[in-house]
Structures are given as C-alpha cells and as structure tokens.
Write a protein that binds this DNA or RNA. Structure first.
Lengths: 208, 208
DNA sequence: TTTAGATTAAAACACATGTTTTAAATGGAC
DNA sequence: GTCCATTTAAAACATGTGTTTTAATCTAAA
C-alpha cells in the first residue's frame, strides 16, 4: 500500500521529528524542508507560518490524546477508591494509543510537549488550556479526590512540579538514557521512562 | 559608599537579570548592553564571546554555592540518621548565602540554573560536572545512605526527575506565581517556592 | 486538448543576531 | 605635561532566520 505522502504530511513528519529532538526554536524551516525533501516556501504555503506549523504538529497528537485522557479520567471517577497512582496511570493508555498516528508517537508526543512548555511557555499553555480546559479541570478534580488533605493551591503547585519532572525527563531523555547505559549498564527504552517516572510523581504528590 | 561599577560588572549584572528572566538564547547582547548602558562591543572585549559571558555569570554563583553545598553535605554525613528530607534541606543554607553576591541571588541563581539545563543542555552540564564533580558524587552518596533500598540506577533517574521539577519550577516560577495569586488568592514569594518544592521532591525520592 | 487553479521551485527580502574592525577617548606612569 | 596601554565608541561584517514574491509546473475538470 504505502500511498505516496502529500507535501503537507511530509512536512509534518519531518517537523515533528526535528522538533522532538532539538526543540521548536532550535529547528529552522530550512532543516525541516531539507528533511522532508520539499521546497522551503511550501511550509508557509501550506501552514502560513512556523507558529502555525508547530500548532499543527501538536494538534495531531492532542486531538487524540486529550479525549482519550478524559475518557480514562471519567472511568476512574466511577471507582470507589481513587489513589494518586491510579490517576497517573490514566495517562498510560492514552499515550499508548498515540502509536496509531505514528510509530514512536508516545515518545515523540511527550518530547514535543516538553519543549512546548520549556520554550514557548505562554503560547502553547494557552492553546492547551483553551481547547482542553475541561480535561484539565477534571484532572484537578480527580487528584483532589485522591488527595483530599491537600489544599487546592498546594495541589496546583505540585501538579506543576509533576509537569516539570515529566517534561524534563522527556527532553533530557536521550542523553540520560545514554548516561544510564554507560554508567550503570542499564539499557532503558524510551517508553520505559514513564514506568520509572509515575511512582516518583505519585510519591511526590502524596508527600505530607 | 556605592563605588562606581566597572563596565565588566555592569555587564554581568544586566546579563544575569535578563538571562534569569528570558533565558540565555532569548537574550541578545544588544539587550544586555542597552540594560547595562554600555557599548555593544564591550561584551566581546571583556568576555570574548556570549558563551564566555554566560559562564562568567554562572561562575559568580557556582563558586560560592558549590563549596557551601559540599560543606553542608559533609556535615550531614557526620550524622547518624540521614533522611531524604535532610539531604534536600542541605540546599537551603547555600542558597541563602547567595544573597551576599546579589540582592535576589538565590532566586536568580535557580532561574539561571533552570535555563542552563533547559536550553544548552550539554554546555553547562559538562561545565558543572567538570568543576564540581566531587560535590555531585557526594550528593549521590548521601542520597544513597538515605535511601539504601533504591538501586543506583533508579536513584540516578529519580535525581534527574528532581532536577527537572526544580528547574521547571524556577523557570515557570513567575508565571505560576501569577496564576496562583489570581486563581487562589495566594501570594507566594519567589523564595517560598523552594519550601513547597522540597517536600514534594523528598516524597518522590522516597516512593516505593 | 485546453485551460484555470493549485502547487512547487527559486530567488530575493527584511531583519536580527554574534562578532570584528577601526577609530576615538581615557587614565595612570614617568 | 607626555606617552602608551587600556578601554570605549561607532560602524560594518558575515551569517542565519522567517517570510514574500515571482515564475514555472503540475493537475484535473471542461
């Protein structure tokens, strides 16, 4: 099968790979068009601007991930007992489903999300909040159920610490995996970082 | 008193303020020299390059912070019982001492460190490891004493999660403080973020 | 086949960056 | 006061960026 890719798709694929590796600002349109083997101007023709391209790259994943996450959270809300760990586990399946859009979708998506928050703080945060505010609210609500002893403002802070650890783990992921392999002889697959991360996050969230 | 500042100092002061606010790459030499009320070329005259200026800005703090941290860690190693929380508390006093070099030294330093890791990953990590490798090793050793049940490689990962949460908290600090004030009516001073952070980090480190 | 619109190609544009160069000014040492 | 090295000033330089323009090409309907 393997139907020939359109220019637009070629750009999206090349862009997301470079973005996930180097970040958004560090990646130039010339790198992208070279990787995609298309003309430089076609980016602005098809997407209008670099910023719009970035959003298009993110949208491909967010449109799948966010509804899936909401689904998981709603299912969890039906449960009697809700633990912090269970809340974070809600992220596993939605991440897994991103494999459908692309081979290494889960890893790519997390890296992109990491750079998005690290670099253009306002830009994407607003985009995310605007389009998926309900999911975020539901996440906060579920976390509050799991941790009723935590004041809303304290949970707000901890949730962002969680975000920070996640983001950083993904962005630095490749380098850290290399060091871990060299110094400890442990080869960790990219998607296994999440397994190490989630207990840590839950522990931090539960801290007194 | 207030002796007149030399050009070199004016550049350093203006640079660190802008770096801490916007990051390194986002800050241009023209912004810096304008803020310092100094000629553009003087940066390259006094420091050689932008990269060297960045290192000079960091060095002013690292040269104070790292020995102080080592001192605290050594003192802790004398203790009988070593908890994870106690390890992280070792960072408090060295941070506080940075007030000597500059008014808001602690906050500035943490922001700078955050951007340093977020942006030019290799560059500063190598610089830090080269010059202060022993302190890092001691930190790892102390943390292992506090958490003997954790394998070295798992601790390696968690330590970097810790770093990520810290870095992110500092870089996004201003924005988050604003949101917290608007949504929860809680005004948090910049230096108080550390108070919220440390329990979270210890909790994550201790997680089973 | 022809033709009109969509797409691609190539070049140029406008701008911002770090750096270098060249000249002027400054400030102690003699 | 003179002179020389240090420092500052102003301009130019080289390069990389996102974007726009203009022309060529392709594609699909008439």
């Amino acid at each position: 099968m393997a139907k020939r890719l359109t220019t637009k798709e070629k750009i999206l694929n090349a862009a997301e790979a470079l973005f996930a590796e180097q970040g958004f600002e560090q990646t130039s349109l010339r790198q992208i068009t070279a990787g995609a083997e298309v003309n430089l101007a076609s980016v602005n023709y098809h997407f209008g601007s670099k910023k719009a391209l970035i959003q298009a790259v993110m949208a491909r994943y967010l449109e799948i991930f966010m509804p899936a996450l909401e689904r998981e959270l709603m299912a969890l809300q039906q449960q009697q007992q809700i633990t912090t760990l269970a809340v974070f586990d809600c992220f596993r399946e939605p991440l897994r489903e991103l494999s459908a859009v692309r081979k290494h979708g889960p890893t790519l998506f997390l890296s992109l999300l990491g750079f998005a928050y690290a670099e253009i703080q306002g830009h994407l945060r607003r985009y995310t909040m605007d389009n998926f505010g309900e999911v975020m609210q539901r996440l906060m609500a579920v976390l509050h159920t799991a941790n009723p002893q935590l004041s809303p403002v304290d949970m707000f802070w901890r949730l962002h610490f969680v975000l920070g650890a996640t983001v950083f783990a993904q962005v630095s992921g490749p380098a850290l995996r290399e060091i871990a392999a060299a110094d400890f002889g442990e080869r960790v697959r990219a998607d296994q970082i999440v397994d190490k991360l989630i207990p840590f996050l839950a522990g931090g969230m539960n801290a007194s």
